[in-house]
Nucleic acid binder design. Structure first.
Lengths: 335, 335
DNA sequence: AAAGTTATTGCAAACGTTTGCAATAACCTC
DNA sequence: GAGGTTATTGCAAACGTTTGCAATAACTTT
């Protein structure tokens, strides 16, 4: 069953041409006569021929691979299991493939701190997509400074030497909060970690909306890790110690919102009647939860496409900027 | 900033040894004097030296890469966004890295039908982990027959030429259903697609539990795609046309369970009082939903580890079998 | 101190592509 | 049909490692 692997030279022999001709024929090089090209390609199909990518990469000095690295601080942040992040990765995977590249999935465990050395010098990938700005960007900056083709999913407003693609988080926060106010909330709670780049923009939007309301609104902020569990705990805690001191919640992510929702429901606080709740992301669960979750939808599919396009542009030595992706308020039952 | 990439021969020159010695020193080959090894490794660190993996792979004829291919029929099944599948991939990623391998994330879009040719002959990876048996296993079988080192996440009871790692789905179905009955349900509904390998085992467990109950139980089956949306729709439909004809639901996955839960809550049918509900998987949301979801927990972390171990064993020419991973009933509020 | 071991290093070939350049084949033009 | 142009092909080098084998260096032993 297991046959000897066919090499280019063998295929060439079968076709009765030289290796160079075979190579060019496979790559559809127009310098080769059409008939010869067809013949070689036909044989390649017939014999299930595949190029040895290792050899090819060595010779070409490029890999046709894009590395995706998930950039999370180990302890406190969103975990790698966060459904939104995984969705982003999955969308990037699609986008990468559509451009004929392959996707090397990586985390800091393998790559260490020297991303340029590991991926680029090591010829593991031609470029990097970093998912998650994190709180600390030194590794990204270092890689960029060394000249790694690189693009980041994060907050596009952050000034940087490298392009960042992400949602308009400020606008998202603004719209979400305006919506809460419009729905009658006047004691607003922000649930999230303003120390985190993307979240801080959402927080800025939150504050701006309250500002606009000219003192009609109270606000408070509870700083938590970006997990549903932390949200659940902190809302519970808050209700226990202070009682129901708010009637509108802007959660920095849907997972956080769902954690909060659970805590509220357990105490028979009605959403949306007693408390209006808005999340962020529009993960699959937002629609399935009951009440379904009003949220700011991030267009991850478009974002993924832009990430890849911008990365390929860099490989092509073009200069590219950061880009904001439009968001959208999805009004559902929770508000 | 961008310096010329250091090659092994340059590093050797710096160390004052030959390329061969440098190579062996880096690989910690004991034939090289300890002092020399230290010296070379020290220099490598200092100059941030990285081997060119393309060259290395060409020479060694192996890649230290494992390909993960998500094997889903395009149209009807769980989507690639399914949180459980993504969790599995994420756990595999961890396990792969822990063994010093890298992970090439792939779907059938790139690999086409000839996985052996694409991954193995093409020297893109040393072995394959296939996630999802799917309904149709021909591509897997073909790759296995051609001698691809390969291991599958799926239903381990399926007879096969290749090792399958997965949960004891039959037992899971049995436990879930016994639990429903123990909680007083007697009109049971199975929600899922028994045409799918893993689900069919869960279904077998479901039927077995009912059998045990000696005619005390009624049963019905609603065949749906494995998505929360399909579940929501079908429960809605069922309630509309037939009314509440069941008091216990075994959903073939948590996403399905959550979709069902939403439909029930919208009609003010109490879970668990009117209807007891059990899911499968234990995704993150199971705990966050309200009521929290009783479910059969799949130990994906252990499974991922076993998948990788078994794949590496194959690379080592050992013969390996399928393996069942223990499951566990997590009793929460929905039952 | 010569001969025999053993520890350590270096030479050179090989892995399988791609491509610059030279060579040949095919076609024109007058 | 000789000379010129263009279309098509092949030769051979290069990409950067790793490793079998031969060579040398460093010890032992007598």
């Amino acid at each position: 069953m297991e046959q000897k692997k066919l090499k280019l030279v063998d295929l060439a022999k079968l076709a009765g041409v030289s290796t160079s001709t075979a190579s060019r024929a496979l790559n559809n090089n127009p310098v080769i006569k059409q008939a010869t090209r067809d013949h070689v390609q036909q044989l390649a199909k017939e014999y299930n021929f595949t190029l040895n990518t290792a050899a090819s990469r060595l010779r070409l000095q490029k890999t046709k691979v894009i590395a995706v690295v998930i950039n999370l601080e180990a302890n406190t942040e969103q975990s790698i299991d966060d459904p939104f992040l995984l969705k982003v990765v999955s969308d990037i995977n699609q986008a990468v493939n559509r451009q004929g590249y392959e996707l090397l999935l990586s985390n800091s465990y393998m790559a260490g701190d020297d991303w340029y050395g590991y991926f680029i010098d090591g010829r593991r990938a031609d470029g990097l997509i970093v998912v998650g700005q994190g709180k600390q960007q030194s590794r990204i900056e270092k890689a960029a400074k060394q000249g790694a083709p690189l693009v980041v999913w994060g907050d596009p407003k952050t000034p940087s030497d490298y392009p960042i693609v992400g949602s308009d988080n400020y606008l998202g926060g603004l719209l979400a909060t305006e919506h809460l106010i419009a729905r009658g909330a006047s004691n607003l709670l922000f649930l999230g970690d303003p120390g985190h780049a993307e979240i801080s923009e959402r927080y800025r939007g939150f504050k701006a909306a309250i500002e606009q309301a000219k003192g009609e609104c109270q606000q408070q902020t509870v700083k938590i890790d970006i997990t549903s569990h932390a949200a659940y705990e902190s809302i519970n805690q808050l209700l226990r110690t202070e009682g129901l001191t708010f009637d509108g919640v802007f959660a920095c992510s849907d997972m956080v919102a769902l954690g909060a929702l659970k805590a509220l429901k357990e105490r028979y606080i009605s959403v949306p009647n007693d408390v209006r709740l808005v999340g962020f992301d529009d993960i699959g669960m937002a629609d399935v939860s009951h009440p379904s979750l009003t949220t700011i939808r991030q267009n991850t599919q478009l974002a993924a496409k832009m990430l890849v396009v911008k990365l390929l542009a860099q490989l092509n030595n073009e200069v590219v900027d950061s880009q904001e992706i439009d968001i959208e308020l999805l009004c559902r039952q929770s508000s």
